[in-house]
Amino acid sequence: MSAVRGAHIAVKLGNEKVLVSGGDGGSGYLNTADLYDPIANTWTAVSPMNFKRCDHVASILSNGSVFVAGGSSGTDLATAEIYNPTTNTWTNTSSMSVARYSPTISVLSNGKILVAGGNHGGSFSNVADLYDPSTGTWAVTGSMNCARFGHAAAVLSNGNVLVTGGCAANSIAEIYDVSTETWTVTGSMMSIRQYHTTSQLTNGTVLVAGGIISTSTYLNSAELY
C-alpha cells in the first residue's frame, strides 16, 4: 500500500478491486485511500477522504459506491462520506446523531444502513442510527438494551440483525427487528466476549469465535447461535 496503516477498513467493489481507507499510520491518523487490483496485483493511491478516520465503518451501496461513517480523527466523528469509484471522488453526506468509533454496520434488506453502538466520548454507546441512501439522511432508531463497544453484528436470514458482545461484563445478545425498529434480548452467549467475529453460515446459524474477556484473557472458544 502507499502507507502503513492499522485499524483501517477494506471493502470489495463490484469490479473485484478492493478499496482500503484511513487507519492509524503510526504517527497520526490517515485520510488516504488505496485501491488494490487483484488482476494486476498492484496498489494505486486514490483520492483521499475528506476526514482522517481510524476505527470507522464502511459498506457498499447498491449503486456501487462506498459508504464510510464515523471513526476517530483524534476526536470522535459523526460525519459520513461516499466514494464514487467512477469519478474517484469523495462526497460528504449527512452526519449521524452521535460521534462514535468502532460501531457495527449492517446493510438491511430494505437498503438502509444500520450503525449501532461504539465508543462515544470515552463511553460505550447504545445509540443506533439508520442511514437512507435514497435520501442521504439519518434517522435515530431504537436504542440497544445494552451499551456496546467491541461488539459484532450479523444480518440474519430473516433480515433482522443479531448483535453480540461488547456489553461490559455481560454476555447477553439482542436482535434488531427491521419492521418494528426495536431491539429484543435473545439470551446470553456461553462466554462474555469483546472484539470477536461473527459469520453467518449457509444453514442460517451464526458462528461466534474468539475475542477477549479482558486485556489479559483471550479466547479460542467458539459457539453457534
Rank of each mutant, 00 (worst) to 15 (best):
A7C: 10
A7W: 15
I9C: 15
G14S: 06
G14P: 02
V18H: 00
V18C: 03
V20I: 15
S21P: 01
G22P: 05
G23N: 03
G26Y: 11
G28S: 05
L30A: 04
N31H: 07
Y36Q: 06
P38V: 09
I39M: 06
I39S: 11
N41Y: 01
T42Q: 09
W43L: 06
A45K: 10
V46A: 05
V46R: 10
S47Y: 01
S47P: 03
N50L: 14
F51P: 00
F51L: 14
F51D: 14
R53I: 09
R53A: 04
C54S: 14
D55I: 07
D55R: 15
H56T: 06
H56A: 11
V57Q: 08
A58K: 00
S59K: 09
I60E: 12
I60L: 15
I60R: 12
L61V: 04
L61Y: 12
V66M: 06
V66S: 08
F67V: 01
F67C: 02
V68P: 06
G70F: 08
S72D: 13
S73G: 15
S73F: 02
T75S: 15
L77Q: 09
L77E: 14
A80S: 15
A80R: 05
S94I: 01
S95W: 00
S97V: 00
S97F: 00
V98G: 04
A99R: 13
P103T: 07
L108I: 05
L108S: 05
S109R: 04
N110S: 05
G111P: 03
K112G: 01
I113W: 05
I113Y: 02
G118N: 09
G118S: 13
N119R: 14
N126S: 13
N126E: 08
V127F: 11
D129I: 01
L130D: 00
Y131P: 01
Y131M: 01
D132V: 02
P133D: 03
P133L: 04
S134W: 03
S134I: 07
T135F: 03
G136Q: 07
A139Q: 12
S143P: 08
M144D: 03
C146W: 15
F149I: 06
F149E: 14
A152R: 01
V155N: 08
V155M: 12
N158S: 11
L162Y: 05
T164Q: 03
C167Q: 13
A169I: 08
I172L: 14
A173S: 14
I175Q: 09
D177R: 12
S179I: 06
E181P: 01
T182Y: 04
T182I: 07
T182V: 09
T182K: 05
W183D: 01
T186M: 10
S188F: 09
M189K: 09
M190C: 10
R193E: 08
T197I: 11
S199G: 08
S199H: 04
T205R: 14
V206K: 04
V208S: 05
I213V: 15
I213F: 13
S214R: 08
S216A: 15
T217R: 12
T217M: 14
L219M: 15
L219S: 14
L224E: 13
L224Q: 12
L224A: 08
L224G: 01
